[in-house]
Design a protein around this nucleic acid. Sequence first.
RNA 1: GGGCGAAUAGCUCAGUUGGUUAGAGCACCUCGCUUACACCGAGGGGGUCAGGGGUUCGAGUCCCUUUUCGCCCACCA
Length: 898
Amino acid sequence: MPKAYDHHEAEEQLYEWWESRGYFKPETQARLGQTRADAEPFVISMPPPNVTGALHVGHALTNSVEDMLIRYNRMLGKPTLWVPGTDHAGIATQNVVERKLDEQGTSRHALGRAAFVSTVWDWKDEYHTRISAQQKRMGISCDWSRERFTLDDGLSEAVLEAFIRLYNDGLIYRGNYLVNWCPRCGSAISDLEVEYEEVEGKLYTFRYPLAEGGYIEVSTTRPETILGDSAVAVHPDDPRYTALIGKTALVPMLNREIPVIADPYVDPEFGTGALKVTPGHDPNDYEIGKRHHLPMINIMNNDATLNEEAGDYAGFDRFEARRKLWADMQDAGLVVGEKAHAHQVGHCQRCNTVVEPLLREQWWMRTKELAAPAIEAVRTGAIEIIPKRFERTYFHWMENIRDWCISRQLWWGHRIPIWYGPDGHAFAARSESDAQEQAIAHYGESVHLEQDPDVLDTWFSSGLWPYSTLGWPEATEDLETFYPTTVLETGYDILFFWVARMVMLGMRFTGEVPFRKVYLHGLVRVEDGRKMSKSLGNALDPLDLIRDYGADAMRFSLLTAGTPGNDLKLSPARIEANRNFANKIWNAARFVILNLEDADLDVTRGPDPFDDSYQLPPLAELTLADRWILARLQAVSAEATRLIDNWQIGEAGRQLYEFVWNEFCDWYIEAAKVSLYEGTPAAAQSTRHVLAYVLENSLRLLHPFMPFVTEAIWQNLPQLPSADRALIISRWPQPTGQEDSQAVEDFTRIQEIVHGVRNVRAEYGVEPAKRIPVAIAGAEFSATLTAQLPLLASLARLDAQSTTIETDLAAPEKSVTVTTAGISVYLPLAGLVDLAAERARLQKELDNLNNMLARSRGLLDNEGFVNKAPANVIERERAKIEELVEKEQQLRVRIQEI
RNA sequence: GGGCGAAUAGCUCAGUUGGUUAGAGCACCUCGCUUACACCGAGGGGGUCAGGGGUUCGAGUCCCUUUUCGCCCACCA
C-alpha cells in the first residue's frame, strides 16, 4: 500500500468492478444470499436530471445522500433498488438547443419540427452520456439496467395512459383562459414557472375621458394595456365616483366606448381609486370582466407585439407601444404624471423574459379533486415529509391549488394525444389509428384528423416517475415488488413542481402513495452564501472536485456540511480537509495491515452466511486500551445507527469522523504500539485482533459515506473478508449492547494524565524526545497505573525505569504537579522549575476548580434541583463534586508545600 | 400581506425528547520529519451562543418580543 491514498487509481476501477459484479442490482443481492427473505425492499427513484447540460454540485448532493441511504440499507440486508434516469426537460432543453441553433445562424423554424426534434435527440444523447459518466464518477450504486428516460417508449406509454384516463374522467379539459405567456418561448407556462421579481417600474397616471365630457383619473403600470381596456371600475361605495357609475368612457387614442362600472374589488385607497379593467391581460381584471360580462379583448400576438386590436399601435413590441402610446397621450393632454413604483413582475423561469398574461386556448388539469387524497396522505402520515416543517408548506400549496396548465407550445416533449375532427371534435387516443376508429364511430365515416400540435408540460411525465419507471401501466413484477417506493429524496425547491404532483398522480393511478418518506435537502451555495450559478462563474464543477480531492471527499463534505432542509455552503477548504480524512483512514489501515502481515490471525466469521462479520474470538489478554476502543466502537456504531435512522445523516458522519480520527488513530493506534512492540505475545495477538476488528467495523460504518476509500482498503485486508466478498455488500455493524464502563473510566483517566503531562512538558519547554521520570501518588488507582505504566510512558514520554508509583508519596522538590481526581503526578523538572510560576499555575487551576465546585454545590444545595432533576443527573453532579473535592485538596496541599 | 429558515470562535458550520466546564474543520500561535500518515503529530489562544423579556431546579436548546439577513407563497392597479 502506498503512503498516500491515490483516489485516481482506486475510484474508477472499483466502480467498474462493483458494477460488473452486479452489486447494484437487487437480483444479485438475492442470488448472493445478501437479503433476508422477510425484509421490506428499500427503493429510491432517482430524481431524473435534466438532459440540458452537465451535472452541478446540487446533483452531487442528491447523489451523495441517496447513495448513502442505498448503501446503508443494502448493508442492512434489505433488497435495495435505486432506479436511475434522466428527464427530457421540455422547455429547458428546447431552449438550450435553440440557443445553439441561433449561434449557428439557424432556428427551429428553419429546420422544421421533425428535423428540430431529431437535433434535440442528438443533444440528449450527448448529454445523457456525459451525465451518466459523471454519475459513475461520483460512485452512485444505482441499477443501470433499469435506467429510464422520460421520453422512452415505456414512459411515453405511461404518459398516454395517464392523459387518456384523466381526460376520460373529466380531469383534463381544454379552455380559453388567461394564461402565463412567455413571448420568447412562444408558449404558455404554468403558475409555478413564473418567477416574480421586484422591478423598479413606474406608476403612470392619466385621464380617462368620459363620453359626456370630463374624465376620471386612473393609474396603471402597463399603459399599453389601455388599448385592451373593457371598463373603468370604481368602488361602489366611493362617494367621489358614485355619480359616474354607468357612464361611458372612451379608450384613449382608440375612442372605443367602455362602461364605468362598480366593483368591490377596487381599493379606493390605492392610486386614484379608479381602476382600468383589462380582462384580456390581467388576472384580476379577468375576474372583474367575468363578473360584469365585459368583452375579453386580446391585444397581443404570441411574440408580444400588438395586434390589430391596438389600432395604430399594431405591430409594435409591447414596450415600444408603451412608450409610443404614452407619448401620444401626453400630446393629447391625457397624462397626469408618472412616478417610480416598485412592483412584482413575473418572469419566465427558463428564459427570464417578462411574462404576459393573455388569453389562449390551453389544456388544463383539474387539480382540486386530485389534491384531496394527496393532502390526506400527508395528514395521516402515510407520507412523511422530512423535515416536518415542509408539511406546512405542502398543505398550504395543496389547499390553495389551482388548475394546472399542462399544454406547451413546444416541439420537444410528449405530444398531446388528442386528434381533432373536421368540426373540431376531440378524440383522445393512443395513436392516430385509434383516433380514426373513434372518429368512424362518431361520424360514421373516416375523416381527416389533425393531432393537437402541443406537447405536455415536462412535469407531467416526471409526475408519473416512481411507477412509470417500474413498468406502469403494465402490471410488471418490478411494480409489484418495488412499489410503493421507500424514500423520495430531493431538494426542497421542487416540492411543488415535482413532489406534490407525484403524490397527486400517484394516488390517482396506483391507489397508493408513491413513496413513504420525502427527505428534502437544502440548496448548495458558495462560501459567500450566494447561489451557485454558471452565469456568476462561481459554480463548482463536481468533476473538478472529484479530480482534485476524490469523490469520497466531495461526498463526505456534502453529507456533513449541513442539516436536512437547510442550505449548505461548500468550500474547497472543507473538501480538502475531508480528502485528508480519506488519507487518514488509508494510513490507519496501512498501520493495521502492516502489523498483521506476519501474524497468523485466526479470523472467524459469523455462522450465518448472511452475516460474515468478523467475530472477535475470546481474548484472554485484552489490554485496557483494547477494551476501551471496543467499548467506544460499540457506542459510536449504536449512535451512528440511531442518527441515520433519525435522518441525521450529517451528524452521523461527523461522529464517525471524530471516532476514527481522534479515538482510533490518535489514541488507540498509539496505545496499540505499546502492546504490539512491548507486550506479551498473547497481548500483542489480542491487540492485532482488536486493531483488525475495529478497522473492519470502521470501514463498514464509513462505507455509505466514503465508498471508494473504504472498499479500496477492504480489498487490501489480508485474511479478513473472503476474496469474493465486497465491502459494498457486507453487513452494517450490529450494536452488541456490550458496554465496558470500567475500561472507559480507566482509559479516560490515563488520557487525562497523558494530556496533563504533555501540557506541562510543552509549557516548560521540555525537549520532545526527552524521557522524563515522574513520581505518581496514585491512591486507589495505583495498581491500575502500575499496570498501565508502559502505556503512560509511551504516550507521555516518561522514563518508566525511574518512575515510581505509590498509593501516597511526597512530592519531590522542585517538581511540577499534574492532578487528576485522586492522582497527583509530579514531574521533577530540575533546573526548569520556577516555584513562583508553578504556584501561580496551580493557583489558577485551583480557582477554576473552585468555580466549578461552587456551581455544582449550588445545584445540590438547591431543593428544586434535588427534588426535580432526574436521578442520573443528580448522581453525576455528586460524583463530580467528589472528584473536584479530591482534586481541590491535592492542589491546595501542593500549593502550600511550595 | 402571510409563512418558513438563519443569527454560536476570525471564517464555514455542528450541537433533535432542556442536564458535565458549548464542539469540529479551516485560519492563528509554540513545538516536533518519534518505524501508519507533514494530506501528519503534540500543546495553545480565541465564544456574555444577535438584543430584551419569560417558563424552569436548570435554557445555545422551550415560549414571547425586537433587530438583521435569506427563502417561499400571495391578484393590489
